[in-house]
Design a protein around this nucleic acid. Structure first.
Length: 664
DNA sequence: AGCACGCCGACT
DNA sequence: GTCGGCGTGCTC
């Protein structure tokens, strides 16, 4: 009798499609299949093999071909995708197909299947494995604590200050896991960090096949690396968030480095958190997971202090003292442009000592806006509710949101006066000011614009390391994970602008960012100095930062969050809608809210409100927040709600549901 | 999401 | 008289 296979397809439907398949067998479960679908041909994944279908037999089509030359996705790997689809209320078929390398999502061209030729592992012939460093007591304790749990689920927060040797802990654990014949999955937030980490890890394990997975790989590399992981050929997988779905038959440990980093969360389409899925995966597979950070997210920190995770601390820097952090009150009388005299003096003496200084300002471009001093006109974007940023040296106005770019007008478009002037500071303007002030110094600006060219950032890193630069000016690009041994001073401008933001996570983020920037200072022998210019030196955030007391700061924020009923003490989901006019989006959300009320349950539905940035690239956006003290209740509600929202016709309005949103 | 079908406005 | 706009509905 002809069997029926049940498969999921890359369509936004919570549906499974049945097809006839003559020679179906149970081993086809988890395999890709080419099928006719409507008027087109597509690829789906076989979820189940049965002998009956609820669908009218006359309607059943036949599978064109099962891709048996590809290894099937194992039930273990399926499990994670199923969980992710349920948890994020995203169609299973799209979640599954979205997790695969692009090549596997499309029907393979030509009839003859290309044989999968297993490539020889690219193992370095290095004769001198890089030596393991001697561990501090704290590192040793961490390695032993996690090591004792190999082979079963346990979640750890490795809370280690910058330079405390978290990576060394990961590497020791990886060595143990590899010895046991298991695979290691290491997740990092940024593509930019993977090549460095990759060569470092490879140097330590020269005989081990290591592959990386991130969006900068081409499709051939991605498929090769994915298969190497799936066959068990690769023993270490290093990657960004998308790597969390890599099939790993012998998974033994998951590491999530810089776990607080927002880039672990996907914010479009399938809005999953790779960090949270890493924990779910470790739980499903019965393996330990280590989350590392100097400034963990409050969600993770709360889990670690409430006993759900084990807290491991690395309180000391290795071979370096912590930087000295000081706030400089802004005083008009003692300033030259954006700089306090104190900061200029510190840069000066830094130059005299032939050390490097870094000026941090989290705003690229020359000035955040161009204004008319006569009538008050501001350069605004036509397609976004945002200001156009002035860029130099060729004067242009850029929208940092939609990418729109245009020339600077000769006169004010509103009143015609020729009185246009840049307002505020960006990296380019600060760079200019520093060149004017320190004429002898070699100033290098590092931001998305100056590093746009391929390999530019690599070259600049090399320039910095070989001391061909005296003063660095840069955005948060400079903050992450890079080790600059000659950097002695960090000056921070405009930190206050990030202090009072509408987002309740602003303080948490700013603390993490400033800690990371501060961590760049004084990695060598001399103690680093960090000078933060601020209007509010007494603010608790700066006070905690000076003390380098993350735990005190986090405890304080958590107490406030508990009081105010914010995450992690409630669980949230956001319904976003966009349309040509915000009124349309709001109308849809009002309807969604009414529907939500009808469904009821232990959830709180807030008012539909326009998004913070209402207009973006010519579309207008609004959102509706839902929350509950109970995660289970929230998810039960979301399931029904989303299904019913999907039934209604939503002409002209695009909507999406985001679970555990990081930005509201 | 695609893709087809279908029903009303300005063009070779 | 047709090309094409996008509303609606379906996909085993």
């Amino acid at each position: 009798m002809t069997a029926v296979v049940r498969l999921v397809l890359d369509v936004p439907l919570d549906k499974v499609f049945d097809y006839r398949l003559e020679d179906a067998s149970a081993t086809d479960r988890g395999r890709l299949a080419v099928v006719p679908f409507g008027s087109r041909t597509t690829v789906g994944m076989i979820l189940d093999v049965t002998d009956a279908s609820d669908v009218d037999p006359a309607q059943l089509k036949s599978v064109t071909r099962v891709l048996r030359e590809e290894p099937a996705l194992s039930p273990d790997d399926w499990q994670l995708l199923r969980f992710a689809s349920d948890y994020y209320h995203y169609p299973l078929g799209q979640a599954v197909m979205g997790a695969l390398p692009l090549r596997l999502r499309k029907p393979p061209r030509a009839t003859a299947a290309r044989a999968v030729r297993p490539r020889a592992a690219r193992i370095r012939a290095a004769a001198d494995p890089a030596p393991f460093h001697e561990l501090t007591e704290a590192q040793l304790a961490a390695v032993e604590a996690v090591g004792a749990q190999l082979g079963r689920f346990a979640a750890f927060l490795l809370l280690g200050v910058t330079g405390s040797g978290k990576t060394e802990v990961y590497l020791r654990l990886a060595a143990d896991v590899l010895d046991r014949g298991n695979q290691v999955l290491m997740l990092v937030p940024e593509i930019a960090l993977t090549p460095q980490l990759e060569s470092m890890v490879q140097a330590r394990f020269p005989q081990t096949r290591l592959v990386s997975l991130h969006s900068a790989l081409n499709e051939t590399e991605r498929l090769t690396n994915w298969r190497a992981a799936q066959t068990g050929d690769a023993r270490i997988v290093l990657g960004t968030r998308l790597a969390v779905f890599t099939p790993l038959p012998q998974l033994g440990l998951i590491v999530v480095d810089e776990e607080h980093d927002g880039s672990f969360k996907q914010t479009e389409g399938f809005c999953y958190s790779a960090r949270d899925l890493a924990i779910a995966r470790a739980h499903q597979r019965g393996v330990p997971v280590v989350l590392g950070s100097a400034t963990p997210s409050l969600e993770t920190y709360h889990n670690a202090t409430s006993g759900r995770y084990t807290l491991l601390e690395l309180p000391q820097r290795i071979n370096a003292r912590p930087p000295r952090i000081e706030c400089i009150p802004l005083d008009r009388r003692q300033m030259t442009g954006s700089f306090t005299t104190r900061l200029l003096d510190a840069i000066e003496s830094c130059l005299v000592r032939k050390d490097q200084a870094l000026v941090f300002i989290n705003r690229r471009g020359y000035a955040p806006v161009l204004t008319c001093r006569h009538c008050g006109w501001l350069s605004g974007c036509d397609r976004c509710s945002a200001q156009l940023v002035l860029h130099m040296p060729k004067p242009r106005l850029h929208c940092h949101h939609c990418g729109h770019e245009r020339r600077v007008p000769d006169a004010c478009p509103q009143c015609g006066e020729q009185d246009l002037t840049p307002l505020g500071q960006g990296t380019q303007r600060i760079e200019e000011a520093l060149r004017d002030r320190f004429t002898e110094a070699r100033v290098l600006r590092i931001d998305r614009d100056s590093t746009r060219r391929k390999h530019a950032w690599d070259a600049m890193r090399e320039q910095i390391r070989s001391r061909d630069v005296d003063i660095l000016v840069g955005t948060q690009m400079l903050a992450k994970g890079h080790d600059f041994p000659h950097l002695a001073l960090v000056g921070v401008l405009n930190a206050d602008s990030m202090l009072y933001s509408a987002d309740f996570r602003a303080a948490e983020r700013l603390y993490a960012l400033l800690t990371q920037v501060a961590g760049r200072a004084g990695r060598g022998e001399s103690q680093g100095e960090v000078l933060i210019q601020t209007e509010y030196p007494a603010h608790p955030l700066y006070a905690a930062l000076r003390e380098q007391d993350f735990r005190g700061f986090a405890d304080q924020l958590l107490a406030e969050r508990r009081q105010a009923g914010f995450p992690p003490f409630v669980h949230q989901a956001l319904l976003r809608a966009e349309a040509r006019e915000v009124a349309k989006a709001l109308e849809f959300l009002e309807h969604a809210r009414a529907l939500g009320r009808e469904i009821g349950g232990n959830v709180q539905l807030f008012d539909a409100v326009p998004a913070l940035l209402v207009r973006l690239a010519g579309r207008e956006r609004a959102q509706l927040l839902v929350q509950s003290g109970s995660r289970t209740d929230l998810h039960a509600f979301l399931k029904t709600w989303r299904a019913r929202l999907g039934q209604g016709k939503t002409s002209r309005v695009r909507w999406a549901l985001e679970v555990d949103p990081l930005e509201l």
